[in-house]
Write a protein that binds this DNA or RNA. Sequence first.
DNA 1: CTTAATGTTCCCCA
DNA 2: TTGGGGAACATTAA
Length: 256
Amino acid sequence: MPELPEAETIARSLAPRLEGRRIVDVEFFARRAHGGRPPEVAGRRIRRVRRYGKQVMIELDRGLLFVRLGMTGSLLLRAGAGPYTRARFTLDQGTLCFDDVRQFGSIRLMDRPPEHLGPDPLEIPATQFVDRLRGRRAQVKRLLLDQSFLRGIGNIYADEILFRARMHPKAVAARISPLRARRLHRAIVEILSRAIKKGGSSISDYVDGEGRQGFFQIQHKVYGKQGTPCQKCGAIIRRIVVAQRGTHYCPTCQRI
DNA sequence: CTTAATGTTCCCCA
DNA sequence: TTGGGGAACATTAA
């Protein structure tokens, strides 16, 4: 469920209900959900709720809670714990549950944001992005998925971005012309911004903090569209594997 | 029964 | 150091 647009949508839906609240109790129902010791944040106040890469960052009056949503994580404003509720924060007003079926997600208390993450894809200037691409011999899709290269892009949006930029997922970054690199940067900003406007993509079970679905999946051009005709040229969308992830692209629109 | 799924991390090899 | 491949983690759905 969680890439940058989903994390952004969740953060926006939670912010007005969480900011200013005080945490009165913290419960964890699964060890994996904190990976160590449960963060002892009872008594602390929530200052701000924002997105950081594809994580939701909850700023406290002391410390930062980083919610990594993994593959199936969600943050929900409701009191009742379901079978997949892994943690629950009781607030002075309301309750926040962290649900996560597959348990690839976790919540950790930090002093500062993780330093191994690259720049935000919506903030990096085009010139800087072009520079970063040069000098990398990796396949471009691998780079888009690499959170130390850019923070926030995942498998769905990598495919949609590459289609938008008319670029083959296996194109070698260093061999991309500056012109096409700029086009890729534009595609990143356009696809992510549009997805945020639509509230993210609900392809299986993604919902925001209030349980609302996203609608960007309606506009997917290649992700999950293997075997169907390309909306642009009619060629059949192909599915290959890149970086061990399903990769969807149009063989005629996207040339190496 | 097999395969794939919005992710990350760790290990191995070139 | 960079880059690629594979496995592992846990669970569900097709």
